[in-house]
């Protein structure tokens, strides 16, 4: 099968604000708005953005922990939105998630061994001996000693807990792991250990990652392709090296410039981008970034910029830096953006 492992098309999620029993119109949080991308087998696809940009909602939509308002999620060509209970459970074996907080994502009442084998036990009944062998095997895979299987999460360090979270995700041999800020809560030295573990696992088992993070340094280190999100929309999607070498969207540029660099000799010339992220309930008209954008022109206030493909295989949504006229002569390309995104 040569198609992409995961294909996301026009995914949209609106959260209603409060219940609308007595109100005529309910304001909605536009958490994710018309997002499309693909993930290939064995690839690390990163999603970056600041709080409220919708990156965590995407993770939950992919896992179908929340139902999408619109759009499709296809894994190996099957639309998972249409799946019913049992089919959905079977499909979940292919895709697992690693959570941000290594404290609250593990049930405090279960032992390490119980936690990491639980997903398998949902599908088949393990005897005591196979259960132990599986737990030991999983623990070894994530660099922990098998004796740890009898410990409770509260007896483990943050790094060890995150290893458990990864072991749990690995237990079903998934082809895709969604890591939602999986290293953000960890200290730098532990973070390095976990990132190395993820890189090793990818090499050994060919797992694809959807790696969601706000930390550009981490994303640059492990990503193959990166999508930058702002207020629920992808504003730039590019191969990792190209994106960091030459960001095109002004927001990407601001984000990279704002990240502190551990080099005291580097002179900081540019002033940080002004203003704050607007509310996703009432996003600005047109391009959501226009109130903070130094390049904004009249058109940015009126019209939402489409994602326009550039020469080096990236797509950018900006009227100024990536005017849509480039593709207007090629209706085949303009018609289906997802084809472009798959490249």
């Amino acid at each position: 099968m040569n198609g992409p492992l995961l294909k996301v098309q026009n995914l949209t999620k609106h959260y209603p604000l409060g219940s609308g029993l007595f109100k005529k119109t309910i304001p909605v949080i536009r958490a994710v708005e018309d997002v499309s991308f693909t993930v290939e087998t064995g690839e690390t696809f990163c999603i970056v953005g600041e709080s409220g940009c919708g990156k965590s909602t995407i993770a939950r939509l992919l896992m179908r922990l929340v139902e999408p308002t619109g759009g499709r999620v296809l894994i190996d060509g099957t639309d998972i939105a249409g799946l019913k209970k049992d089919a959905l459970r079977a499909w979940r074996r292919r895709m697992q998630m690693v959570f941000q907080d290594p404290y609250s994502s593990l049930n405090p009442r279960l032992t390490a061994g119980q936690i990491i084998t639980e997903p398998v036990e949902n599908f088949e009944c393990l005897g005591r001996r196979r259960h132990q062998a599986l737990a030991a095997d999983l623990l070894r895979k994530v660099g922990m000693s098998p004796e740890m299987m009898h410990r409770l999460p509260s007896e483990l360090s943050g790094g060890q807990r995150q290893r458990l979270g990864i072991a749990r995700a690995l237990s079903l041999n998934p082809s895709l792991i969604i890591a939602d800020e999986a290293v953000s809560a960890l200290d730098v030295s532990v973070q390095a250990q976990i990132l190395n573990l993820l890189l090793d696992l990818q090499q050994q088992m060919g797992i694809a990652f959807v790696f969601i993070s706000h930390d550009l340094g981490v994303v640059e280190h492990i990503g193959h392709r990166v999508a930058v999100m702002y207020l629920g929309r992808i504003v730039e999607l590019a191969p990792c090296e190209a994106l960091f070498a030459k960001p095109i969207h002004p927001y990407t540029e601001a984000l990279i410039a704002a990240a502190p660099v551990p080099d005291p000799t580097r002179l900081r010339l540019e002033a940080p981008v002004e203003g704050e992220v607007p509310s996703p309930v009432y996003p600005p008209s047109g391009c959501a970034f226009h109130p903070r954008c130094p390049l904004a022109v009249e058109r940015c206030r009126i019209e939402v910029p489409p994602l326009v493909p550039m020469a080096d295989g990236r797509v950018v949504a900006c009227h100024v830096r990536a005017p849509a006229t480039e593709i207007s002569g090629n209706p085949a390309l303009a018609g289906d953006r997802s084809i472009l995104l798959a490249q």
Binding site: L65, A90, R92, Q96, F99, S105, P119, R168, L172
Partner: peptide, 26 residues
């Protein structure tokens, strides 16, 4: 809403099991 309940759901646990093992004890 705890992540470990979401983790159980994404691990493919059925509703009764989620309730019995992860929600009832607390």
């Amino acid at each position: 809403e705890r992540p470990y309940v979401e983790a159980a759901v994404s691990g493919g646990a059925r509703l009764p099991k989620v309730l019995w093992r992860h929600i009832l004890p607390s």
